[in-house]
Amino acid sequence: MLKKINLPSKRREGGEKPPEPDLTPIMSLMVVLIPVLLQVAQLSDIALLEYKPPAEAADDSGGGGGGDDEENTDEEKNLKLDLLVNLHEDGVIQVSMYNKLDLGEHFFEIPAAPNGNYNFRILNDSLYSIKTREVGEPTGIDSVLNEETQKYETFKTYRVEDGRQVKITALGKTPFQSIVDIMDVCRFKLGDESKELFPLTELRQFQ
């Protein structure tokens, strides 16, 4: 025979509830913290443009020494493109290679865009064609120790010693925005960042 169990009455069961913590001060703290952090979070809009001028080659003026047999290989190794981009005030861009200053294949001018600004699109196309025609495909991979991070950074090597370098000169009044634009244009092919052009820029005095 089943024994009848007496359950507590429903009225008595719902009588006492645990007290809820007062969250209002925590909420006030959050209301202050979140706008502060949101203001700081605007940092994501800024970036860094690294400028590390390539070290001057010690044998820039031509070193001596070396046997006759080594001369040819040395010459090949020291083959330099000497790519130079000159920004003129009137929107004209001059591009020079192998230190040539006579108009031709290795020295040419890019006229200003119809709005009078520098025609960076044509410059980018020209640099891409120079990279493919004069520099060519990479011949190997080299690495250098980054003293700051203590990690080895690898980079491609080319037929010409300075296959990743470009010298930029401009008139004294040229605004910094134009310099940033041209540094960007020289780095990669526009619209395709996998195609590296001349990422090592060197800013120089206009000559």
Binding site: V40, L43, I46, A47, L48, L49, F176, Q177, D181, D184
Partner: peptide, 20 residues
């Protein structure tokens, strides 16, 4: 924290390297 200064107007660029 690199915060753009209020005393100047920064140029725009295509680089995306995080500031340090």
């Amino acid at each position: 924290m690199v915060r753009p200064s209020q005393y100047l107007e920064l140029p725009e660029g295509a680089r995306k390297v995080e500031p340090e």
